[in-house]
Design a protein around this nucleic acid. Structure first.
Lengths: 346, 346
DNA sequence: TTGCCTGCCGAAAACGTTTTCGTGTTAAAA
DNA sequence: TTTTAACACGAAAACGTTTTCGGCAGGCAA
């Protein structure tokens, strides 16, 4: 088991200086062809590769992107990572992943771990707890130390940085309008508490669609779930809540849910009650997930384009990293959603 | 936008040497209490944190684990990462992720990118293409350079390293036995081509269960899919193949599939043919996935415990990294599977 | 006074690179 | 023969740490 070979060792073996070896390997014209070939042959033989850490220290850049997401066992976030990784790799960057598990503390600790030289910039989506606490000092601190941040999906206006989002309001408005056009008049909304920005925005879209179509709002049709931790208990609680929702409102003929699992559970409850989908009642969810496609009936959804979000976020970050002068203006890229119609709608 | 502060800057500001600052911050007894307090106060004020890269270079260890997986948009792999990240973070390590996308070249390139000092060790699951080509030189090379590797799930015996696997044969044998005990006599198998190690092993389990129960093997009941790339086309092809399988064999009363999606698709086909699940036909899949739980009917599966695999793999790797002497013996941890019975079986 | 110990601090090396700047040799030009 | 230029290479600094070693001053004992 030989250790990785270094310039110093090559230099010693070949009885030249370290500088000569380095230059020879980079094909510097300063070095005679003889020496160059000799060094390169030796390096190839011993499979020499420059030590990344040494390069990072010297160049003061790591060619690594830090990604902090609330959870990874989640189709949307996995897609985003996949997109980030795609462009990062294409442009010579690595991706280092931190999970906040929706916890403020873990988010802060994870960022601190990475911010001390390990990475060149962050791509992140804010944890629910952070959104609830509204404590964003760690973001501002990181930015003020000259490390760029790109936020995606769950963003917050108070922080000045590049962002990649979807138009949540528009997306859900379109979905609800679709239900209305399909004849639904009593459309239930299953959403999250308002501190989750995307939940709030999607709720707004629902309200706007109703308003535009002059359908009176029935607040009894709105179910706001508190899902700080997404445990098994939560699923059971969710089911119970939905059952009560249906019990309270016999006339529900459409359901719009702000994520996949809410919609799937609602369909399950409806089926148990003997309702025909999409005959008696129609459903639309919000996400990219794999569940929607394979559910029975398959679920119509507003697609979030997670992969594309990841790609855009990575591009934004790397462009900024590779810019010579500091670009002081920040962009917010809005990705278009589109409605994927499947069997749960007419 | 001030840059991150360094020891040198603190030293200059306070008119002491760099060594003194370093020692003062680490509470060395060599430094007078006066100086210590002064330095620490200043460091705190400027929020000093040691540069990780410099530490890595000096200590010749990065406290970072490299993970290479075939894809991340996959419930099982996401779970594994989640497990790795859990114990890595607990023990002060970061996790850097590379995706091979089931491609040999990307696997090699990704490993090369990380092996040059960026990480202390690898945790990986081999890509399908690599398994097919049976070219493992990059693993051996990495290991011979003193960088430990832990393989999980898709492993290969030729490589000498720590491994974390499940007993695929036993798991599938149990599943098929369950079907047999539930009265199935014509059990179809939907599996992958044999070069995928786990597919081959699970196929073996199927054969063993039949043999033990003296059920004659009908090779017409076995469908081996080639899924080099998991595209949309593949899903369509899969459906067609399954339809033909059912058409050829009218008496199928049980299906065992080596992954989740195969099982779900098979259920879909069966339902389309008007078969009652689990009355006319029963299904068991193999995985951890979210689809199984929410499918209709929900799918009984052999659970792979991805999270636990990740935790075990990370523990194995970090233990080895932190061992003083080189431990020459390698372990293979076998994680017990268990059958999760849901609605698709009696 | 001399010698020694102790407390406090700084110089320097090391990790592995790249790059700037010198320096010595040789051949060509004056 | 002397000057100059081209050529080939090496020394050293720098990135930011930690740590070893040495040194200086002061206090105390002999």
């Amino acid at each position: 088991m030989r250790r990785k070979i270094t310039l110093k060792q090559i230099a010693k073996e070949l009885d030249v200086s370290i500088s000569t070896v380095s230059k020879a390997l980079r094909n510097s014209a300063e070095i005679s062809e003889d020496t160059r070939e000799k060094v390169q042959a030796f390096a190839k033989l011993y499979n020499y590769r420059p030590n990344n850490i040494a390069l990072s220290l010297k160049n003061r850049q790591t060619k690594t992107i830090g990604v902090i997401i609330p959870e990874i066992v989640h189709h949307f976030f996995a897609k985003v990572i996949s997109g980030i990784e795609l462009v990062a790799n294409r442009r010579g960057y690595n991706v280092i992943v931190g999970l906040s598990n929706e916890s403020f503390d873990k988010e802060v600790i994870n960022m601190q771990m990475l911010a001390n030289g390990s990475i060149d910039g962050f791509i992140l989506s804010i944890s629910k707890e952070t959104l609830q606490l509204q404590d964003y000092h760690h973001f501002n601190e990181t930015i003020s130390q000259g490390m760029p941040i790109v936020m995606f999906d769950r963003v917050v206006n108070d922080i000045v940085c590049d962002k990649v989002i979807i138009d949540d309001t528009k997306g859900s408005k379109n979905a609800v309008r679709k239900l209305i056009n399909n004849g639904c008049r009593h459309i239930a909304l299953i959403t999250t508490k308002d501190y989750v920005s995307v939940g709030r925005l999607r709720t707004m879209g629902y309200l706007e669609a109703l308003y535009d179509n002059k359908i009176e709002l029935d607040s009894d049709l709105i179910l706001k779930m508190d899902d700080k931790q997404f445990s098994e208990d939560h699923l059971d609680a969710l089911e119970t809540e939905i059952e009560q929702l249906f019990a309270r409102n016999k006339k529900i003929d459409g359901v719009f849910a702000v994520n996949e699992i809410y919609a799937i559970m609602a369909m399950k409850v409806a089926r148990k009650k003997g309702l025909k989908i999409p005959g008696d009642i129609q459903f639309i969810g919000f996400t990219d997930g794999v569940l929607s496609k394979h559910a029975t009936p398959s679920l119509s959804t507003v697609s979030q384009h997670g992969q594309e979000m990841g790609e855009k976020a990575a591009t934004l970050l790397i462009n900024r990293l590779e810019l010579e002068e500091d670009e002081e203006r920040f962009q917010t890229i809005v990705i278009e959603t589109n409605l994927i119609e499947r069997e749960s709608t007419k």
